[in-house]
Design a protein around this nucleic acid. Sequence first.
DNA 1: GCCTTAGTGTCGTCTACTCGACAATCTTTG
DNA 2: CAAAGATTGTCGAGTAGACGACACTAAGGC
Lengths: 229, 229
Amino acid sequence: MQNRLLDALAEDDLRLIGPHLAQIDLERGRLLYDPGDPIDTVYFPHDGVISLMTLMENGAAIESATIGCEGALGLMAAVAPRQSLSRAIVQTPTRASRISAERLHEAWEKSAHLKHLVDSHNEALFGHAIQSVACNALHSVEARFCRWLLTCHDRISTDTVALTQEFLADMLGVQRTTVTAVARALQEKGAIRYRRGVVDIIDRSVLEQLACECYGVIRDTYERLLPEG
Amino acid sequence: MQNRLLDALAEDDLRLIGPHLAQIDLERGRLLYDPGDPIDTVYFPHDGVISLMTLMENGAAIESATIGCEGALGLMAAVAPRQSLSRAIVQTPTRASRISAERLHEAWEKSAHLKHLVDSHNEALFGHAIQSVACNALHSVEARFCRWLLTCHDRISTDTVALTQEFLADMLGVQRTTVTAVARALQEKGAIRYRRGVVDIIDRSVLEQLACECYGVIRDTYERLLPEG
DNA sequence: GCCTTAGTGTCGTCTACTCGACAATCTTTG
DNA sequence: CAAAGATTGTCGAGTAGACGACACTAAGGC
């Protein structure tokens, strides 16, 4: 698996940023940014999921978007120095390329192609967000749970996701007991298997049936806006 | 009232786009864009509110963000040709300046200041969206109702908003009967007065107390990212 | 004046989810 | 091995909001 933005770069562009890219392994749970943090590093995940979470005053943290191999974390900072708007946390163990925001900005100034990529990505991410706005207002926890699993599955190379129900409850902004009930229902339907802290995806097609349309809408937005589906 | 983005332009920039700006009055309910429409015109509201609505397969349309004098509709198209991701509909009678996306793009290419403005605005709009994601998952209809009214009130020059409960129910993604109940509660608390198709804002401070934190968070994001609070 | 229609009020049923509490089970550590 | 901690299962009461049905009322057209 590779990062689709990096893959789309022409040779010229790669020469610009390649030397400044470093491979890194990010462990699950690692905190990359909190709201207000200056974005000094941009991450291009190859395999794994990074969650953008909105923090509330009462300490609640709910996921507002995800970043995987289709995108990058902190890409807005390629254009100009930026502070993070949300918490960015590593959801599953992630291999990524990282680059300093400054170096990326320098390359961005020189490459029209890179500018276009950054722009398309930001647009797709915005599309992701507004679909989630609607989804969270209208759809059941089960549908959103399935959407979340599918989105995650698309961005990792295994059928196994390590996460606790407690954590997933935070992601979805619901009670843990609700997650427990939904997880059991999905297990009975043969979609997943739940072990302590681990979800195994058994049958994607069941998940796709139970997920809301938002899964497809968001995926299609990325396909349309980003190169080489 | 003036559009804050246009106000922030230096003389040089105004010379670039000024000749191509046209004043326009947009009547309530007017449909400006649907998903997939090419964005050929950019609107800078002076007084009034434009809603971005996400459409669902079943016909539901829920608001994902609002545009007023602090921003512009279709501004992503200043960078490169774009299709609308959502429906854009005129919420309250709106005076606006409009410009063709092409002309704006030409100016954008020449003005670093304009580029920066576009960029900041898109960032703030993204912040608006991700806060709404969280809000819709976590907060009560009453709190969201109040947030909506306050956001709207900030963007118009009167204390009167013309809208039906039916329409507001769509905005918030809830049943009309729920809106009726909440509206009555707010009226009893002295925050608003509800006449047939019209909301009068009586006491902002009550609304502010009942609204969720998201109102302030979103407003502050715009203040921080856009010039001259 | 009347009729039509859009907008609102109200009521009852139903469901999904909240919220708190506690037991059961697995995992790690000393 | 025992103890401590983390994770999950379960139960029950409570509530916000969905949903459908219908009556009522203001406003505009004729």
